[in-house]
Structures are given as C-alpha cells and as structure tokens.
Amino acid sequence: MSQYLVLIYGDEAAYAAYSPAEFDDMLAAHRTFQQIAGDANRGGQALQPTATATTIRHDANGEVVITDGPFAEAKEALGGYYLLEAPDLDAAIAIAARVPAPTGGVEVRPIQVYPQS
C-alpha cells in the first residue's frame, strides 16, 4: 500500500463567515468522510488560519529569514489535510473525491519514500 497526502484548500474568508450551523454541517461532512474512508484514513487535521503561519526561508547567503504569513499568497489557502493509504493513485483519488471542500478543492500527492540507511 502507498500513502497519499490530501491537501484541502479553501477560501478562508468564506469559512470565517460561516454561521455556527454551517460550521457544524461542515464538521459533520468531515466526520462522514472519515467513516467513508475507513481504514484508508491514516490521520488528518485542520490548520489554523494563514494569519498564524510563519515562513522560514534561506537567503542567497544561507542566512535564515523568518517572516509572518504563509509561504505563498493565494486566493485559496491550505486549511487541512488527510493522510490516506491506498493501493494506487486511482484508489486514493476515488477516496479524496469525497473530501468536503465547499469553498475550494483538494490536491492528492503521493508520499515520497526514501530508502532507510
């Protein structure tokens, strides 16, 4: 079995404007997804808003530069993830297609496995 990271993107302003009932509905949709995914779901979490992000880069001289905010500004922000285990990419996509992302979408990325030394 291979592992796949499902990155959930959405419009933070839209999420922030959700009523308590809309937020509860979204959480219920994620609980339903977790039941549908079953054992393929190896974990996942929501992320705090991009305003809480800190970006660390190295400048041309190799010095560490720390800035407040996300790595890249975008209309849709990374809001959470699931780690799936599936026999192949097609199976992972079939599961990920059920992830609730009402203000955006999801990206499926295979996990790169390096040989252990």
Rank of each mutant, 00 (worst) to 15 (best):
A40G: 15
V65I: 14
V6A: 08
P49N: 08
S19G: 01
A96H: 04
N41V: 04
G69Q: 05
Q48M: 12
K75F: 01
P70M: 10
G79F: 02
I66P: 05
A13T: 15
E107Y: 02
Q34W: 04
A74V: 03
I56R: 08
A72V: 14
G43K: 08
R31P: 05
Q34E: 15
T55C: 10
E73A: 09
A92S: 13
L27H: 09
Q112H: 09
S2K: 13
D25H: 10
L5G: 03
A14N: 06
P100M: 11
T103E: 14
A37Q: 09
V6W: 02
D39E: 15
E85Y: 10
A53Q: 05
H30A: 05
Y9K: 13
Q112S: 13
R109P: 07
E12S: 01
S117Q: 09
G43W: 02
G44Q: 10
A16D: 14
V106L: 03
G80V: 03
G69T: 09
T50H: 06
I56M: 12
V64S: 12
A14K: 14
A101L: 06
K75P: 08
R57A: 10
T50L: 05
P110A: 14
R42C: 10
I111W: 00
A97Y: 03
S19L: 05
G69I: 09
P70K: 07
T52V: 10
R109W: 01
A17R: 07
M1S: 11
Q48V: 12
L83N: 00
R109D: 07
F71R: 03
I56E: 02
H58R: 10
A91M: 01
D25C: 08
L47H: 02
F23G: 04
A72E: 13
Y82N: 08
E76W: 02
D68P: 04
E107V: 12
H58P: 01
E22W: 00
T52C: 05
G80M: 06
Q35M: 12
V108R: 03
I66E: 11
Q3R: 15
D59W: 12
R57E: 14
E12C: 09
D90K: 02
E22T: 14
T52G: 07
A60D: 15
Q48Y: 01
I111C: 15
Q3G: 01
R42V: 11
V113M: 12
L84K: 03
G62V: 01
Q34I: 08
H30N: 13
A46Y: 09
P102F: 00
E12N: 02
A37G: 08
R98Q: 15
D24C: 04
L5W: 08
P100T: 12
L83F: 04
P49K: 09
Y114R: 10
Q3S: 13
V99H: 05
V65Q: 11
G62T: 02
T50P: 09
G104T: 00
E76Y: 00
